[in-house]
């Protein structure tokens, strides 16, 4: 359970929102001109990273507006929200939130409640 700052309504409980999957996957401009493979990649294939993820959310039980968010999927921390149509913030802005080489933050993630000696 976390909170999300709707860019239109402000901070609200997660239960008011629905997740809409990866953001910035543009619908092909001219679907007839692309191959089956290209089209099916647009329809079916999404990234599923551990770490920084740009994704779409909709304030379902609120203003019903769609917006984008940057979430760290390993800590569920929402690092930034921005409106549809706004340029995505560069990845390097969030790079320092992942601390270990494996992509596992050393606190707040995984099943290890004891600090590794």
């Amino acid at each position: 359970m976390f909170t999300i700052r709707c860019p239109y309504c402000g901070e609200r409980d997660q239960s008011e929102f629905s997740n809409g999957g990866e953001a910035h996957v543009a619908r092909p401009k001219d679907p007839e001109q692309i191959s089956d493979r290209e089209w099916s990649e647009y329809v079916f294939i999404r990234a599923n990273p551990k770490g920084i993820y740009y994704e779409r959310w909709v304030h379902t039980h609120g203003c019903k507006k769609w917006f984008n968010a940057v979430r760290n999927t390993s800590t569920d921390e929402i690092l930034k929200v921005y409106k549809m149509g706004e340029a995505p913030p560069p990845l390097k802005e969030f790079k320092n939130t992942i601390k270990t080489p494996s992509g596992e933050p050393d606190v707040g993630s995984g099943n290890f409640s004891v600090k590794k000696p």
Binding site: D106, V107, G108, S109, F112, S113, V114, K115
Partner: peptide, 10 residues
Amino acid sequence: FTQSKGLLKW
């Protein structure tokens, strides 16, 4: 404390 994802030490 551990539910909150804090880390422990012996």
